[in-house]
């Protein structure tokens, strides 16, 4: 939430900068910069978004609804929700634990762990998917053992979950570490002196202090979990109605030249993105209220 906390200060600074005659730019400069930014925004962000919905609805509502209620589409929606429902809570717990460990304790290898958490961000998602194929695939390290015990990971739901967990690993931890480091240990120490046990400290002191940052991380994590393509594509096997998530379903429809259906499904993902952004703004606003109160 360092990002969240920064927003408010940036806004106040910008206003001061803008109303101060000494630092104000000439009108034409302002218009030029604003114009450049706006046209970029329209060209690369707004137009594609509109295009998704326009294409989706080109053949009318009936086609749109049909494309979404197609059994394969429904199965893809269900699978995407299922994967997110498993991966996000896992990463929530992991993120809190990792951030807690890194921010509140001193230990050897702390910096290494911090770097390691960022690994999924720096590795291409396709490689991430391949790692799991190499580990759990038929020819992989654990392939024989898994085959003997009749456990299917690759080309099945567990593989999708694993790949998604890996890719969305850093979101929660990354959001919480700077926040918890900034808050320090004093409040927890105060709580323990007052007689609180570890459980009470977490629920009554730590969690309330990080809740907005945590929610922010969870929402970003969720958006990525539902939208992930690369890693999931490698481990999925693209079995229609079984291992296809929404992004993969879009690709299949598109490759079959079924554009209206492809865009209809894509519009769901676009909607998800917009809801995410909306929630993100609400949380930033809420958190800023907290920040203003704590300054």
């Amino acid at each position: 939430m360092a990002a969240v906390a920064g927003v408010l200060h940036a806004r106040v600074d910008a206003r001061r900068y803008e109303t101060n005659a000494a630092t104000r730019e000439a009108p034409w400069v302002r218009r030029l910069i604003l114009g450049a930014a706006l046209s970029f925004f329209v060209l690369f962000l707004l137009m594609p978004l509109l295009a998704v919905f326009a294409e989706a609805l080109r053949k009318g509502w009936f086609t749109y609804v049909t494309a979404l209620t197609d059994p394969d589409a429904l199965s893809a929606i269900y699978l995407t929700l299922l994967v997110a429902a498993i991966a996000v809570p896992l990463n929530l717990v992991f993120g809190v634990v990792a951030a807690w460990t890194i921010a509140k304790f001193e230990f050897r290898g702390k910096r290494f762990l911090t770097t390691l958490i960022d690994l999924p961000f720096s590795v291409s998602p396709v490689i991430a998917g391949l790692i799991f194929v190499l580990l759990f695939g038929a020819q992989g390290w654990f392939g024989d053992w898994l085959f003997e015990h009749d456990i299917k990971i690759i080309f099945a739901v567990p593989g999708l979950v694993l790949a998604t967990v890996f890719v969305t690993f850093p979101f929660v931890a990354r959001e919480l570490i700077p926040l918890m480091e900034a808050q320090g240990r004093e409040e927890e120490e105060a709580a323990v002196v007052l007689g609180a046990n570890g459980w009470q400290i977490f629920w009554r002191v730590t969690l309330p202090n990080i809740k907005w940052g945590l929610l922010y991380g969870v929402i970003l994590c969720n958006a990525r979990a539902m939208g992930e393509f690369g890693a999931v594509s490698v481990v999925s096997g693209h079995i229609r109605g079984q291992t296809n998530t929404l992004p993969l379903h879009v690709e299949i429809l598109y490759n079959e030249y079924n554009f209206a259906a492809a865009f209809a499904v894509a519009s769901l993902l676009a909607l998800l993105a917009m809801v995410t952004l909306g929630l993100k703004s609400v949380i930033e606003w809420k958190a800023n209220q907290g920040v203003t109160a704590t300054d």
Binding site: E187, E189, A190, A191, R204, T294
Partner: peptide
């Protein structure tokens, strides 16, 4: 504590 360490919430 020196910096009070009050529970801010």
């Amino acid at each position: 504590f020196q910096h009070y360490a009050l529970f801010r919430h």
